[in-house]
Design a protein around this nucleic acid. Structure first.
Lengths: 172, 172
DNA sequence: TCGAGATATTTTAAGCTTAAAGTATTTTGC
DNA sequence: GCAAAATACTTTAAGCTTAAAATATCTCGA
């Protein structure tokens, strides 16, 4: 029978061949999204309540902490996977708070380099230590083996998604 | 030695006792967030490009499709896990598009019932079928066993998070 | 029944986010 | 060199999101 033949189909073909019957994947996506949102909401709430900071600002500061020599807005944009215009606004607000320093790029008059100010670095280091403990608390019930399993499964989901994105891009 | 004693500590205590050394959890959270955002961005893009609809509007319509007799804004708000004010705006925009019907609640003059209009239902059914195939394509490289594993791990992460949230709430 | 508290919703102010268009500068190919 | 293309960034308009305050209505107990 057609249905039981071991024809090697690529993932895209498999999906196209069997419309309907994707409940398992749909439930997985729903659960993945719900779970991630649950954690993200809690972390946003704690950052706001304990440090009066937003998650995007925290993330931007984390990038700068890893790059002490400074980054351009374009580098921040691609590392954070957000638009250029988004970074423009975030940097403005962090500069206004005195958490960032800004200087012109020595090579390129279009670009500017931003880095953590000493206040910014001090604030970030303190937040990061606490943040790490929050995350550990949130995942406390997962054992080391389960963490490894999840890392592996997420890596696979990521490459699977990348292929779907590539398929879509190829089809215009 | 203290470090090797098999003292039964609950998750919260374990975290508090060993500040630092939570790299594995931190990397897991980063990967979970990145992977979910990758998928979410792709789905948002396809919804916009193929159907000119946003993810929040699609989600709201999905709730109404599951509840054909209509829902109050408050029910929508709690099912979607977003604020009341958020739902007010989404419903306004969907009404303006002619995708929703609205009527006063028969019991409660404060509340209103919204449901999909016939246009809305037709549009949603069409989008939902395609959306299901997108999700299947995105997770195509995961086998049934891997989907089950991930479902189980996410469920565990969810209960673990719920406990962390409860801990935090208990501490004010 | 009356008033206090609860509930359903809206409004407001602030911030995040994007796509698209615009500006300034640099790079590239001839 | 110089024009065209690429790049770095900003601006704009639109939408999403929240917390907090405000409004309207309902419920419940004395």
């Amino acid at each position: 029978m057609q249905d039981t033949m071991a024809v090697p189909l690529d993932a895209e073909t498999k999906v196209a061949e069997r419309p309907g019957d994707h409940q398992a994947e749909l439930r997985l996506w729903l659960r993945l999204l719900t779970c991630t949102n649950l954690i993200e909401t809690e972390i946003r709430r704690r950052l706001r309540e304990e440090f009066n900071v937003t998650l995007p600002r925290f993330d931007l500061m984390a990038q700068l902490d890893k790059n002490p020599s400074g980054m351009t807005l374009g580098e921040l944009s691609s590392r954070m996977m957000v638009s250029n215009g988004n970074v423009t606004g975030l940097v403005e607000r962090l500069l206004a708070q005195g958490l960032l320093d800004r200087r012109p790029s020595p090579n390129d008059r279009r670009a500017q380099l931003v880095s953590l100010s000493s206040d910014g670095r001090r604030a970030f280091r303190s937040m990061a230590r606490t943040h790490e403990n929050w995350v550990a608390e949130i995942f406390a019930e997962l054992g080391p083996g389960e963490i490894d399993d999840m890392m592996r499964l997420l890596a696979k989901a990521k490459t699977s998604t990348a292929k779907a994105v590539a398929n879509r891009d190829a089809a215009q």
